[in-house]
Design a protein around this nucleic acid. Structure first.
Length: 112
DNA sequence: ACTTTGACTATAA
DNA sequence: GTTATAGCCAAAG
C-alpha cells in the first residue's frame, strides 16, 4: 500500500464505514495518526463530491453526533434522509443513540 | 514561502 | 442553549 495523501486516506476510511453506522471527524483523524486534524477530515469531505468512488460522507458527523455537514450535501435534509435510509435515526440534525451507532475505524483491524 | 481558510474540538463566559 | 476564543493541521490561493 503506497503512501497516500491525507485526503485519500480519509476517503479510504470513510468508505469502510458500514451502513447504519456513523463516525466522527476526530475518530478518522486519530486513525490516520493526527487526532487533532479533525478539521482536515471535514475539509477532505468538502472535496469528496468529486471523488470516485464517492464517499458516504453522510456517515461522518461531529463529535456530538450532529450533522454538521448537512448544509454541504444539498438543499434541506438530504444528509438526514440518507442516514435514515441506512437505518440511522436522526432527529434535530443529531444522530439518535450516537454512542450505539458510532463506528470506530479501529474495527478495520479486526476485519469486522 | 506566506496567508487564509475550513463539514472540528475543547474550554470559558 | 449560545457566542467567543484558542488550538490544531493540511490544502488552496
Amino acid at each position: 500500500m503506497k503512501k497516500q495523501d491525507f485526503f485519500t486516506s480519509v476517503y479510504d476510511v470513510v468508505r469502510q464505514i458500514p451502513p447504519g453506522r456513523v463516525t466522527s471527524y476526530v475518530a478518522i483523524a486519530r486513525f490516520l495518526g493526527s487526532g487533532k486534524s479533525a478539521r482536515m477530515v471535514g475539509w477532505a469531505m468538502n472535496a469528496s463530491f468529486a471523488v470516485d468512488p464517492p464517499v458516504p460522507a453522510q456517515r461522518v458527523v461531529n463529535a456530538s453526533g450532529m450533522l454538521s455537514g448537512k448544509f454541504h450535501f444539498g438543499p434541506g435534509d438530504e444528509m438526514k434522509n440518507l442516514l435514515e435510509a441506512e437505518g440511522v435515526k436522526v432527529e434535530n440534525d443529531q444522530v439518535c443513540e450516537f454512542s450505539q451507532v458510532f463506528w470506530n475505524p479501529a474495527e478495520l483491524l479486526e476485519e469486522i
